[in-house]
Nucleic acid binder design. Structure first.
Lengths: 341, 341
DNA sequence: CTGTTAGCGCCTTCAC
DNA sequence: GTGAAGGCGCTAACAG
């Protein structure tokens, strides 16, 4: 539809200079006299000239655009990370193309293929659950082999060598569990809807270590793997009725909230009967009743960091350098009303 | 970095055909013999050839990319809309570039300028609060004048003539208020952190009409305009202490939740002492305690609709047609525990 | 100081 | 059937 797209060519005709003179003048090239510069700039302003980005991209073989692949925009954690990425990218004149994998391997692959043909300069990605289950990371390697850098965040894999930004999941979970133990909890369970992911696994391990250190035993039975949030209402109350539980560590925010509401639904009190700690400091945690004690993953910051990393990578000439760093962002435990002191 | 980007030219050299023959062969042009087609296609597959999108874009003067400008990704409503847009766009082979205006006029303008130079084929936008306050919509008109279509959703303005997708804010608010009146509420207030926006205004009007119809009076004092969420904790409890209130209509989800928590914090019961109804059926409403009665804005659906509209527009040749339709999506009231029956 | 030329990768007449 | 040539809009090396 571009009715009135002004081009260098048209400006050249209008000004009676050559295309390249116009181009140079607008770029403030010292070769051009101030007189013609002014003339041309005035004309450009008059006609509201804006250089065509696509043509520039073709010429420069670069797009100033980053592809962002996230599993689920409705999880507050990912929304926060996205906000961080967008902010940092915009600040440096980069755009982001966002694809939502919806936890699907196929969509993740397709999205990356779609973008890897010149649409973006690199990727920021958090791997989908299904990809973890399939253990197939070829699409990621393919992109890297094409020369496009990848930064993984949160959900990462050792199978692919690239920059990564993660949180200290193990320690966070270990710390959260210990917090409950110190508060006197003796029967702490772990619930996780993300058990297949890298972060899910590390969080279980942290929990296990804390339990082992203190009670010399971990029962696998006390680790509740939830495949789908919809199963919560079935699995959890049943378990709570049959077993003595006085503490819950939940691997993400939503499951912590579900857990709390189900506990309350059984007529029990949080934290008096059962303490609950979750991950991700989101809008749910802050506004639940009682407010949720959570491990703050600093999502926005994490997004900024991932973006900084990829921009570094894109703007560095030193191709030789190994880009296989892992940055660990320390979480903070935000203590609120859902856990005993 | 694009180490190994295979191009038509390279394929031509490798196959000893001309560039144009290769191009035609890969496009299944009937001019080319099956024999050479097969040869070339095999080679293309072998070298994992993918046409360079940027070059295609330059040629076709189109990007198959839509610019999406939203005020705030952390509000669940906008996340839902974004999910809908992304899904619909992807299904039709379109990408989305997301910009977050953060309710800032300047960022909205900059984002649009940045994208309006060939990066996108059109825009889907929800206007920022600050833009409403400034009442300056020139940047939107400029984009349209350049030939790029815009679809506005939710927060729209009559000042710009373009396609719009909104919900029936007036009726929804009217209905929600009436619901409380029918349940016996006599002193219903309205709280709004989005009073400057198009939707904020319509929601107040719906509330006012319901109050007027039933009580023959509306006091402006009972409409609480909140500039910033942080002010809630100050303004609301004070008001509740000084005034008899038994019902609250909140203009968005978060303020409904804040309201509920502050009410509970005062030692009052929801809904027994005060009923609360909010807008947006998000994750907060569903998981609050008590769960929130809300007006479901069908965000995902709204996003789909907006995307369909712009794709229609992009793929229609009939330039003559006036693109100034407004689609109204009907909300549904989801009744939960926060309002009396 | 200014203009000509060439080329980014692709597609599309138009010759042969 | 195949290839040469031109152009999308821009930049940059090289002439003048």
């Amino acid at each position: 539809m571009s009715n009135q797209m002004m081009t260098l060519k048209k400006l050249a005709e209008l000004s009676n200079f050559s295309i390249s003179t116009v181009s140079k003048a607008l770029a403030d090239n010292p070769e051009i006299s101030n007189k013609t510069k002014n003339k041309i700039k005035k004309l450009a302003k008059l006609y509201n000239y804006r250089p065509n980005i696509i043509a520039k991209n073709l010429k420069s073989r670069t797009t100033r655009t980053i592809g962002v692949i996230i599993p689920n925009i409705l999880a507050h954690f990912f929304a926060k990370v996205l906000a961080g990425i967008e902010k940092e990218a915009t600040q440096h004149g980069y755009n982001i193309i966002t694809c939502i994998s919806d936890e699907s391997y196929e969509k993740e692959v397709k999205s990356m293929e779609m973008l890897a043909n010149g649409s973006v300069d690199g990727f920021i990605i958090s791997i989908s659950k299904e990809t973890f289950i399939k253990e197939n990371y070829q699409h990621l390697q393919d992109v890297i082999d094409k020369g496009l850098p990848i930064v993984m965040f949160d959900r990462v894999t050792d199978e692919v060598s690239c920059d990564k930004v993660i949180i200290n999941d193990f320690e966070s979970s270990f710390g959260a569990t210990n917090r409950l133990i110190e508060a006197g909890c003796k029967n702490i369970i772990f619930v996780s809807p993300i058990h297949n992911t890298s972060v899910g696994l590390k969080r279980v391990e942290g929990y296990k270590k804390a339990i082992n250190d203190n009670f010399n035993k971990v029962s696998e039975r006390e680790i509740l793997i939830i495949e789908d949030y919809k199963q919560f209402a079935k699995i959890l109350p049943e378990f709570l009725k049959k077993n003595k539980v006085d503490g819950v560590i939940a691997a993400d925010e939503l499951s912590a909230i579900y857990t709390m509401n189900l506990i309350i639904g059984l007529g029990l009190k949080v934290p008096n009967d059962i303490s609950v700690i979750g991950f991700t400091d989101g809008i749910l945690a802050e506004n639940s009743n009682p407010p949720l004690t959570t491990v703050d993953q600093h999502g926005t910051n994490l997004g900024c960091m991932a973006t900084k990393k990829i921009l570094d990578r894109l703007n560095s000439e030193t191709e030789i350098k190994k880009y296989n760093t892992t940055t660990v962002i320390k979480t903070s435990l935000i203590v609120r009303g859902s856990s005993k002191e």
